[in-house]
Design a protein around this nucleic acid. Structure first.
Length: 569
RNA sequence: GCGCCCAUGGCUCAAUUGGAUAGAGCAACAGAUUUCUAAUCUGUGGGUUGCAGGUUCGAGUCCUGCUGGGCGCGCCA
């Protein structure tokens, strides 16, 4: 049961107006409180405590209220009857949306021929959890990995390959796409070194940069050799992405469609833009002005074609909106990217509006904060590069392994991986996604307190009790302790929490709820023994019932975060 | 220059979107296991919420100014 909603509705009906129901920060004040008297007093110019005294008896009459009293400047604090809580606590049921939406979700956005690095951590983890929240709430989501698979970086990679294998057929004038190309291939790790090397070279060698640009243009115009080569390394890169995603227990993307695919629609979009007279020449480029008279901030135009005639990511992003509207006709498109791209999305949404491509009200950009190192600057490895996601995962795995060894435990590899991934994901999810946060490898691998492993450990303990017990969990109407009561209240808080997490796109609410629930579970676990001879059977049944509710609720939360609960740890 | 965001114990973060005595974790210290997993639990110390005003019953939260930081501002994505 959604206790908050039940109590709120009952009070509103009884009072005949909508009273603001709160859960006090300090639980000792009560299970719920309302400031209705203070709000009312302001409007009626009355004394809030007197008004509270008028309202109070009506609240006291409600059958689930054990006590209600006036406190402080005019709060009414409400306590709920224990047996009501015990009887109505239930595992959260997915609250299906009355009007399910179709939502395109754009996150991940990995780059071809570049391994996933720390910059992809949040978009992957938070995006996945947002996706799961939307589905949990009954909406249909279509997830897009809008890959960086078509820009200048592709030209650089090909230019690099040409440099190290100038004799390969892809670069010959008489290239025959029909020939056997199976011997021209790369390992994933080899492929991932190409871009960084090419990029470093391009910075100091202008002729190499120029060649990369020529190759980029050739690739985009359909040069057979370049495209054949692209078609060789693209799947290798895609497999890398999928492997890392799988390690992180992130739902597979519904679409791996990136800039290359969007580029197919640039021509159609160009026609629309021209018909609306939105494209204009500027310094050899074709741009779309998105400035409004009311703007106080700098608002540069979007660049559709650059001065070399190549499509930019502005153009492919516009085309992607067009394609999604055409193909999915979604109610909403949600983009999850680094908040530094906010201006780009503001521009994009304005173009979508100007060109009539999509209802601008239903385009949403969620900008997440940067993951920083201890120095407050974007997290880098000691060598100054963005840390590879696979390496970060490995560090976490090694830390779990050494922890397991020092505790004289024996756990299989899957379990160790799950614990490491939980540590990494929970650490990300627990932060407000809009804020920067500091990634401290030491605290991510400490596993104590507010961590993913703590959450898993709590679930494992509950499962252990439930698995050992031969007694059937059963609800008995007997007195409950304060720890049992607090736990039940938290379980009933789930529905309110998930609604808020959904509305605010606040993935941290799930993580913090799960942690708070675990704290209460562990307190309950400590003070409420179950499988012991001196505990009477009715208490055992009751506590098992509560244990099961807690476990099932925790499972819903961990599922939303994509954490796997091990059998033991 | 213009615009957006941020500032909370030693450190990392919360604070129900304006509510009551600002909460957790880490670190420090003191305890708890003949008992369902000690990756746990209980307790102690630690705060003028960057500074100065303002709005009101009530401000970490809203407004103004200042200080200090981060980010963005047409041919990278």
């Amino acid at each position: 049961m959604n206790l908050y909603k039940y109590v709120s509705d009952a009070i509103n009906e009884k009072l005949g107006f909508v009273a603001n129901l709160e859960t006090p920060r300090n639980r000792e004040f009560g299970d719920f409180s309302t400031n209705a008297a203070m709000v009312g007093a302001k409007l009626a110019h009355k004394n809030p405590r007197e008004l509270a005294a008028e309202i109070l008896p009506k609240i006291q009459e409600l059958d689930f209220v054990s006590s209600a009293e006036i406190a402080g400047p005019g709060f009414i604090n409400i306590k709920i009857k224990d047996d009501f809580i015990l009887k109505n606590a239930s595992v959260p049921q997915p609250q299906k949306a009355t009007v399910p939406l179709v939502v395109d979700m754009d996150y991940g956005a990995y780059n071809v021929a570049k391994s996933l690095h720390i910059g992809h951590l949040r978009t992957s983890i938070v995006g996945d959890t947002l996706n799961r929240i939307f589905r949990f709430m009954g909406h249909k989501t279509i997830s897009y990995n809008h890959m960086g698979d078509w820009g200048r970086s592709m030209g650089m990679v090909i230019a690099w390959i040409k440099r190290i294998h100038p004799d390969w057929p892809f670069f010959q004038d008489d290239f025959d796409a029909g020939m056997d190309l199976s011997k021209y291939t790369f390992t994933a790790s080899e492929l991932n070194t190409f871009y960084p090397q090419a990029s470093a070279l391009a910075r100091q060698d202008e002729s190499f940069m120029e060649e990369a640009q020529i190759i980029t243009a050739g690739l985009q115009r359909g040069n057979k050799g370049y495209n054949a080569l692209y078609n060789i390394f693209m799947p290798i890169s895609l497999k890398c992405m999928h492997d890392t995603i799988e390690k992180l227990n992130i739902l597979p993307f519904d679409n791996d469609l990136g800039e290359k695919h969007a580029a197919l629609y640039v021509g159609e979009v160009e026609k629309i833009l021209r018909a609306k007279n939105l494209l204009q020449q500027s310094d050899g480029a074709e741009i779309i002005s998105v400035k409004k008279d009311t703007d106080t901030a700098p608002m540069p135009p979007m660049m559709f074609y650059n001065s070399r005639g190549a499509t930019t990511y502005d153009a492919t992003d516009i085309a992607a909106v067009y394609y999604r509207k055409l193909n999915d006709n979604p109610n909403k498109i949600i983009y999850l990217t680094d908040s530094r791209q906010s201006l780009h999305f503001e521009q994009l949404f304005r173009v979508a509006e100007l060109a009539g491509l999509f209802d601008v009200k239903n385009l949403e950009h969620i900008g997440y904060g940067t993951i920083n190192g201890a120095d407050g600057k974007p997290f880098k490895t000691r060598s100054g590069n963005a840390a590879d996601l696979d390496d970060i995962i490995q560090v976490a795995i090694d830390a779990v392994r050494s922890r397991v060894a020092s505790n004289n435990k024996q756990l299989d590899n899957d379990t160790i991986n799950n614990i490491a991934i939980a540590a990494l994901k929970f650490n990300d999810l627990m932060h407000d996604l809009r804020s920067d946060y500091i990634f401290d490898p030491e605290s991510v691998t400490s596993f104590e307190g507010r961590t993913g492993p703590y959450v898993l450990y709590t679930a494992v303990r509950l499962n252990s009790v439930l698995n050992r017990s031969t007694i059937t969990p059963q609800l008995n109407n007997i007195e409950i302790s304060v720890d049992e009561r607090n736990l039940l209240m938290a379980i009933m808080d789930f529905d309110k929490m998930i609604q808020s997490a959904y509305e605010n796109r606040a993935t941290d609410m799930i993580a913090n709820y799960a942690y708070n629930l675990c704290q209460l579970i562990n307190a309950f676990y400590h003070t409420c023994p179950i499988l012991r001879d001196d505990i009477d059977i009715k208490t055992q049944q009751n506590r098992l019932y509560i244990t099961k509710l807690a476990r099932d609720t925790l499972v819903v939360a961990t599922d939303l975060m994509g954490l796997k609960i091990p059998a033991k740890m």
